[in-house]
């Protein structure tokens, strides 16, 4: 290893660990100052996680959140030179993080919703399906427009959306009973604002199928298995006005 390569490797090793030893040969009595860089690294990445997961932070409090974020940074340091996108695997980390598994088993699901909010916020700007006079005569039921990139569909075995929603929007958080069971949710962006809604299983299946490339009528066929009263026209109009469907490709 040449001297430069050794310099970078030792700096990196000392920053990633809590150990000054690797840089003692580089900086002698000043080696402990590597903690200034270590601190910037940890704090920068930690702040990115704390701000990307605001509902998780509200639920666990600042001190616990910062401790979890620090543990995450040590396990999964950033790879991209933009912390804006850092931390998409934080929900998966929480699923495996022993203290959370034991006391807050629903926390990773809440983290998924925080991440989905950011994904909706930062997704590319797709053109939204419009039904104007120029499309008179088109059989809408046969259209397969797909969903715009901002749409995030999530499903949970527990009432994670209710927990997330009340902690996201309510000043006085509402109690959520775990007996409420499974939930489905959709988040999307319209006119640069982020929206979210709890939806039924049938609505989830409907939107998921549209996102998978099926036509409205094909998607509807599966929905009635979960809801015999599923109203295709009502669903179409609801999500059309919300801007979930992508403009047709020419």
């Amino acid at each position: 290893m040449d001297k430069d390569t050794e310099f970078y490797a030792k700096m990196a090793q000392a920053i990633l660990s809590m150990d000054d030893e690797p840089v003692k040969s580089l900086f002698g009595p000043f080696a402990n100052r590597i903690d200034a860089h270590r601190g910037s690294f940890i704090t920068g990445a930690q702040n990115a996680i704390v701000s990307a997961y605001p509902v998780v932070a509200r639920l666990v409090g600042d001190e616990y959140m910062r401790a979890m974020a620090q543990a995450f940074v040590r396990k999964s340091p950033p790879k991209l030179a933009s912390l804006t996108l850092y931390g998409d695997d934080f929900p998966a980390f929480l699923r495996e993080f022993a203290p959370v598994q034991k006391d807050l088993p629903w926390l990773s699901a809440v983290a998924e919703l925080d991440r989905a909010w950011f994904a909706a916020y930062a997704a590319k700007d797709d053109e939204v399906l419009r039904i104007g006079d120029d499309r008179h005569g088109i059989d809408l039921a046969l259209l397969a427009p797909g969903l715009v990139a901002s749409v995030q569909l999530l499903r949970f075995k527990i009432p994670a959306y209710s927990i997330w929603r009340t902690n996201k929007v309510d000043e006085n958080v509402q109690a959520v009973h775990m007996q409420k069971g499974a939930e489905w949710a959709v988040l999307w962006r319209q006119d640069n604002q982020i929206f979210h809604a709890g939806i039924s299983r049938a609505e989830y299946v409907f939107l998921n199928n549209i996102g998978g490339g099926l036509s409205f009528v094909q998607s509807f066929a599966e929905c009635v298995r979960y809801d015999q009263d599923f109203d295709l026209q009502q669903q179409f109009l609801r999500w059309l006005s919300a801007g979930l469907f992508m403009e047709l490709k020419p």
């Binding site: 430069d4 700096m11 920053i15 690294f41 920068g44 990115a48 950033p78 030179a81 912390l83």
Partner: peptide, 25 residues
């Protein structure tokens, strides 16, 4: 400054060595 080594981004502005080889790079 440098902030990346291999696949780790250090989220800080780290000083490189002030050497001839460093200058060339």
């Amino acid at each position: 400054a440098w902030s990346r080594l291999g696949d780790v981004y250090f989220a800080d502005l780290l000083p490189p060595p002030a050497t001839k080889s460093s200058l060339d790079r």
